[in-house]
Simulated assay, not measured.
Amino acid sequence: MGIYGQDWASYQSATPSTKGLAFAFVKIAEGLGYINPKWIEQRNHAKAAGLVWGAYYYPHMANSAREEADYFLKQVAWQPGDVVILDWEGYDTANAGVPKARQLDYKEEWLRYVKDRMPHNPVGMYCNADYWRNVDNTGYCGDFLWIATGGRKAGDPGIKADWLFHQYTDTPIDTNYCHLGSVDELRAWALSFAEPATPTHPGPTPESPTPTPAPRRSRPGIYRVIGV
């Protein structure tokens, strides 16, 4: 039971192997100046292989959460079923000096702001068990949690909170497990956030000529209108 996927960044090929995969999450941007130069090829490659696709953003948490979110969101022509992810971790030089309380506030604001802007896509969070246990104190992760606990068995991240994805190894590439039963089930979940289609009433086509109007009645009456 369960399905597998990978997360890709610029240090992966533009067209990694998709054998045995159901989903792929691709790094799009970082901070306010970096764009993964391979992300479009990686996205197109994943979708062409029938994978559920998601995009993740790596923050510089001394910056404005909304400004960074806007920078990330504008890079992508988002489609129904695309998964939107905050990569919430801060061990690098851009974030190590940012107080943990500020990192927590950033996470909360980014997720809520992005969800407000993207109500019809799943919006969630990636973090490792250290951040989940020691930096977070709200348990808020948006629509889903993607948890990383390297060295543990796939599907056994060692936390009690509900999770959807588990990154269980980075050897030889970041590899993830999802507890849903198939790529179709995962796609149905991702599409469940999409805006319902508005019914349309198409005009006549060559195969369906304009109907002849009903004759007018010569005196008033009471009518029940159906299907209007």
Rank of each mutant, 00 (worst) to 15 (best):
Q6T: 10
W132S: 02
A214E: 12
A65I: 05
R152Y: 08
E67I: 09
G227Q: 08
G181S: 15
V135T: 10
D130V: 10
W39S: 01
P196Q: 02
A96W: 14
D174Y: 06
G33S: 15
R102H: 02
L111W: 04
W88I: 09
W110L: 13
L73I: 14
Y131R: 01
K115W: 08
A77L: 05
Y168F: 14
M125G: 00
E67P: 00
T212N: 04
A214S: 11
V114M: 11
T18A: 09
K74R: 14
Y113H: 04
P99T: 10
M125C: 14
W132I: 01
V83R: 08
I85P: 10
E185Y: 04
Y56V: 01
R219I: 03
K100P: 00
N95A: 09
Y11P: 06
P215I: 05
S64C: 10
V183Y: 03
W39E: 04
P209S: 06
W53K: 00
G158D: 12
V98P: 03
I173L: 14
V83H: 12
A22C: 07
D143L: 03
A129T: 15
I3K: 09
E30M: 11
M118L: 11
G203P: 00
Y34V: 08
F23H: 10
A65G: 02
W8I: 08
F72G: 02
R117L: 15
E41H: 09
T210L: 12
Y131I: 07
N137K: 13
T138N: 08
Y56P: 01
A48G: 15
P220L: 05
G2F: 06
W146R: 11
S192D: 11
Y57V: 00
H179D: 13
K74H: 12
T93Y: 13
W110D: 02
S17F: 06
D184P: 00
P80E: 09
V123N: 09
V228G: 10
Q79R: 15
R43E: 12
P80F: 08
Y4C: 01
F72S: 04
G124L: 08
L51P: 12
G142D: 06
P80T: 07
V225M: 14
I3D: 13
K19R: 14
